[in-house]
């Protein structure tokens, strides 16, 4: 049995080397490198036959002993999920970019994106903004976005929250511009979301960014806009 396995494996391994040497395409170059690496790691023996333990580790993905390295080796799954969710985000952006933004369509795409990556605050922020734009309560998404930072190591949490609120503020500003362009008036829920965002941003960032004044002023201005439904904002 052992002999039979060797009879199969050795020619296969030889084929790899022969094949890698025939042409010079990028793929062959990559495979050639892979084979060098496999030999240096002991995945393949000097005679070209694979070592079973390392072969199992390399093909079946058993643990390296370091969780970060394991995560990095399996990161292809994560890359795919980000790519898929980003495609949904792009389609949502396209639906919102029209002269008459299709908010329901955008929400459908953002729902899909959130289903793929539920803890992604970027998606939650955008969904919250579009929900507010349609007059719905965005709190469920904003809370979920804020909580996504809790999972990070302590020292990264503050930086994460800063980025969450800064990103939300940008989405809200874009939403206000979009609403003014498409229907002349801004929903009160959007101004409420803006006020809440600047209030939180004021807590986490000391220097104002791109609002022209301090976050506290921006917060007060948004609150004033939200305070008179039918006059300063659309109910």
């Amino acid at each position: 049995m052992k002999l039979r396995i060797k009879k199969i494996i050795i020619p296969m391994a030889l084929l790899l080397f022969i094949g890698a040497g025939c042409t010079r395409s990028d793929k062959d170059l990559a495979i050639g490198f892979l084979m060098d690496w496999a030999v240096s790691q002991g995945i393949i023996n000097e005679d070209g036959s694979p070592t079973w333990s390392t072969l199992a580790r390399s093909t079946l993905g058993t643990s390296t002993g370091d969780p970060q390295t394991d995560a990095a080796i399996d990161a292809g799954v994560v890359a795919k999920s980000i790519k898929d969710s980003d495609e949904q985000i792009d389609q949502a952006d396209q639906a919102l970019a029209n002269d008459q933004p299709d908010r329901e369509k955008a929400l459908d795409h953002l729902n899909q994106a959130a289903k793929i990556r539920p803890d992604d605050w970027y998606i939650r922020n955008q969904r919250a903004t579009v929900l507010a734009e349609t007059g719905k309560d965005p709190q469920k998404d904003t809370t979920r976005a804020d909580k996504s930072c809790d999972k990070l190591a302590d020292r990264s949490q503050r930086r994460c929250l800063e980025r969450v609120y800064a990103n939300r503020a940008e989405f809200v500003e874009a939403s206000i511009a979009r609403q003014i362009r498409s229907r002349g008036k801004v929903k009160c829920t959007t101004y409420e979301l803006q006020a809440a965002t600047y209030k939180e941003l004021g807590r986490y960032r000391l220097t104002p960014f791109e609002v022209g004044d301090t976050y506290f002023d921006a917060y007060q201005r948004a609150q004033t806009q939200a305070s008179q439904p039918g006059v300063t904002c659309a109910p």
Binding site: L15, G19, K27, I31, W37, S40, I43, T59, A72
Partner: peptide, 27 residues
């Protein structure tokens, strides 16, 4: 050589084998 030793990874063996076999056929 030292760098190769610290490099970790995963090979999709069936895919590598099938591409190599098909390139030999092409040859």
């Amino acid at each position: 050589q030292e760098f190769m030793n610290v490099l970790e990874g995963k090979i999709n063996y069936p895919a590598v084998l099938s591409t190599q076999i098909s390139s030999i056929y092409k040859f």
